[in-house]
Design a protein around this nucleic acid. Sequence first.
RNA 1: GGUCCCGUAGCUCAUCUGGAUAGAGCGACAGCCUUCUAAGCUGUAGGUACUUGGUUCGAGUCCAAGCGGGAUCACCA
Length: 599
Amino acid sequence: MTLHQQIKAASLAALQALYPEQAFELDQIAVNQTKPEFTGHYTVVLFPFVKTLRCKPNELGEKLGDYLLAHTSLFSAHQTVSGFLNLSIKDQVFTDLLLHNFNNPNFGKAAPKSKKVMLEYSSPNTNKPLHFGHLRNIFLGYATANILKNDGQEVIKANLVNDRGIHICKSMIAWQDYGNGATPSSTGIKGDHLVGDYYVRFNNEYKKQIAALVSQGMDATQAEKEAPIMQATQAMLRDWEKGDENVRQLWKMMNDWVYEGFNNTYARLGVDFDKYYFESNTYLLGKQLVESGLANGILYQKEDHSVWVDLSDEGLDQKLLLRGDGTSVYMTQDLGTAKLKYDDYGIDQSIYVIADEQNYHMQVLQIILKKLGEPCWKGIYHLSYGMVELPSGRMKSREGTVVDADDMMDEMIVLAKEQTEAAGKTEGFSDAELQDLYEMIGMGALKFYLLRVEPKKKMIFDPKESIDLHGFTATFIQYAHARICSILRRENLPIMPDSSHFQGFVASEKLTDAEGKLLLSLEQFPEVLKAAANEYSPAIVCNYAFGLAQLFNSFYDNHPIAKAATDEKKNLRLMLIVMTAQVLRQGMNLLGIRLPEKM
RNA sequence: GGUCCCGUAGCUCAUCUGGAUAGAGCGACAGCCUUCUAAGCUGUAGGUACUUGGUUCGAGUCCAAGCGGGAUCACCA
C-alpha cells in the first residue's frame, strides 16, 4: 500500500474511532501532498467533516492528529493550519522504504492481473512515408502499451496496415507512368519515400490534367472525375479487386518497398508489434457481419440494395455499411476487424490509438457493434490524441508540407551532436559510443517532446524552432541520471549495487529536507504509474520523472554525497541516488527513452 | 446548423479529479564552477485561469449561457 492510501485508511479508521456514531466513507477523505510553505508531507482536508460533526476544523485536526500519532507508526508530528491537518512522515518510514527498495528493479511494477488487451497503433497507409504526426501516434501507442504491461496487464501490440484502396493505386499509377522502372536500389531512395514521391507526383499530374480540362471549358467537378490519370487509377483499383495478376504484382512489389522502409523506421524508433493486420486480408470480413445484421432486421436496405444502420435512437444519423454494389466501406472493414481481434485473442479490451479527427467514427463503430450484438463492443476504447500541426496548419502529404519522420530523427541526432560538442563533453568516448549517445539524446528529446503533453491536446510544432535540450526535456532527466552514474563510478559501485555494499547500515541521523523530498517523491512512483495506466497517459510519467530529476539536481547541489559528513550519511545518500537512478530509468524505459551512464 | 474537444504567465505546458497565497520549462533580468558533470543550481519580474452567472464551507477544476479556436456530421479512408 502506498503512503497515500495508508494515510487515507488510517484517517478513516481514526475518524470512525473518534466518532463511532457517525459513518464515514473513504472517498470523503482528501489527502494531498502538503504545500511547500507548510511543514509536513501529507495533508488531510478537514472541511468535509466539520458540518456533520459540528466542530471547529482546528479542534478536529488536533484530535485526529493526536489519534493518528498515537495509533499508527507513520507520523512524527502534526500541525493543523486553518482547516488542514499537516502530517509529517517519520524518517524511519522513508529509510525503511529506501532499504527495501533502493535496488529493487520491480519497484512500481504491479502484480500480473488477468486482463488481456490489444493496443492498435501506428496503422499506416502504404502510399507515403511516416511523418511527424505519425510519430505522436507511435510513441503514444508504444509507451501506453508498456505502461499497461507494467500495470500487470497482458498487452498485444497490433498494427493494422492500410495497404489497399484508391490512395494506394495513386502511387502505383504514377510509378507505372513516370517511374521508368525506378526502384529503391536503383535510386538509393528508401522504399517508403520512393513510393511517397510517386504519390506526390500523382497529385501534381492530376492537378495539371484538371487545369487542362477546365481551360478547355469543362467544369471543375466534372474535370476531377474525368482526368485521365484518375480514370486510370479507378480502373486499377477495379483490376486489383478482381485479382488482376499484373496489378497485384505491382502492388505487392511497391508495398514491399514500403514495408522495408517502415521496418527500418520502426527499428530506429525502437518500437515493435506483436501482430500485423492487413486490410487487404480483412476488408471483406465486415460484410458477413452486416449481412447477418440485415437478416436479423437490425439493419435495413434501401431500394438500391445499399445497407444502412439507423442510429437515430442514439442521437446520431443513418450510416451506410454496404454500397449498392455490395462493396464495403471503411466502417464495414472496421466492424470486421474489431470482431477478428476479439476472436483471435479473446481480449478483454481493444484499444485504438487514433487521432481525434476520428472520434465520431469510433463512437459509431462501437454503437454498431453493440447493436449487432457483438460482445467485442464493450472492450473498445478509443485512445484519442490531438493532431500535430504546423504553424501554417495541418500537414498535408499531398501538398508535401509534412515534416518527415526520418528527417526529423536525423535532425534531432545532429542537434544532439552539435550541443554535445558545443558543451565540450565528447572526451573519453569512442566514436561508436558518441554515436550511441547522440542517438539516445536526440531520440529521447523527440520522444519526450511528443509524450509530455496530455494526449487529448493538440500540438503545434514549428520546424524553424528546434526541439530544446534544456528544461522540461528528456535531456534533463538523462543528465541527472548520468551524474548519478558518475558518482557511483567514482565510488566503485555498480549501477545497481546489492545490499552487501551497505552491510551493517543503520539509519539513525535525521533526514534533511532535500533527502525527505526525494524519498517522498520516490515513494509515489508506484501510484504515478498506476495513474498513468488508468488514464492511458505517458505524459503523467514525463511530468513525474522531470520532477524527480529536478529534486535530485537540487539535492545534488547542496548535499555532498561521496564526501558526506559521516559514513552513515554517505551510505544513505548513495542508496538514495541508486534508487533515484533506478526509478528514472524505469520510468523512461516505459516511454522508450534510454538513459546514458555518461554524457 | 447538430455533436464533440480545447481556451491557465509573452511562448510551451502542469495543477494529484473540488482544497491552503494557481506551479514548472523556455524567453528576460541578477547571482553560483580551485568541492561528486554548469545540458545544472539559486533568486527576481511575469496571472482578472476567455466572459458572465450558478452550485459549494471552498471552483482553473462541476453546471448553464455566451465568446474565440479546432474536429466531425460522405456510397473517402
